[in-house]
Amino acid sequence: MHIVDGALSGPVLISGAVLAVLGVGIGLKKLDAERLPQVGVLSAAFFVASYIHLPLGFSSVHLILNGLIGLALGWVAFPALLIALLLQAVFFGFGGFSVLGVNTLNIALPAVLVFYLCRRGITAYSDRTAAIWGGIGGGGSVALTTVMVAGSLALSGQAFWAAAQITLIAHIPVILVEAFVTGSAVLLLRKVKPEFLQLSETWQEQRYG
């Protein structure tokens, strides 16, 4: 998921950085001080997730979690993911500093889109519907990210379709695992800790009386 230093052209790097700064700005504006600890926990979860490789067949996958982060945080996903990506670059050497903006945009923008697309779904009355929408959000955000990664590479001169196909096919297992995990997480959070998903008290009363 992380594009490395040197793979992208200058204009792509600069426009990525500008858009990421805009996103982070909106996120910081929308950031509610009381939710800061939650933002930190999700940022840490993203940071660690890419370190834990789960063996799967001949290869290994790791969770990306940007769907879940988007559903819980909305625009605040931008600053949360920026910090996690920065630390991944420092500690693990994933990605790099010049591509930090593009990487943040590629991972955080799908998270925000998922927030707007699946938000209504996960507040649905039925648990099953909510879990399915959570799954769509989890898998969809990873799929969107792969398309954006392929897009960034295409804008820098690589053939878009070839790159998009390769990354998308390679990430099918991740998309499925992510959909499964996010769907289950939504289901659990709705029951145990609805405020984690910013579900209001009126919703809780309506849902559980």
Partner: peptide, 23 residues
């Protein structure tokens, strides 16, 4: 190339530290 446990813990520490600063 292998990230070790110290790095992971260090990173988590940084994230919580930044949150603490924010709070």
């Amino acid at each position: 190339a292998k990230a070790n446990l110290q790095n992971v813990l260090g990173g988590i520490g940084y994230i919580f530290g930044i949150c603490g600063l924010g709070i």
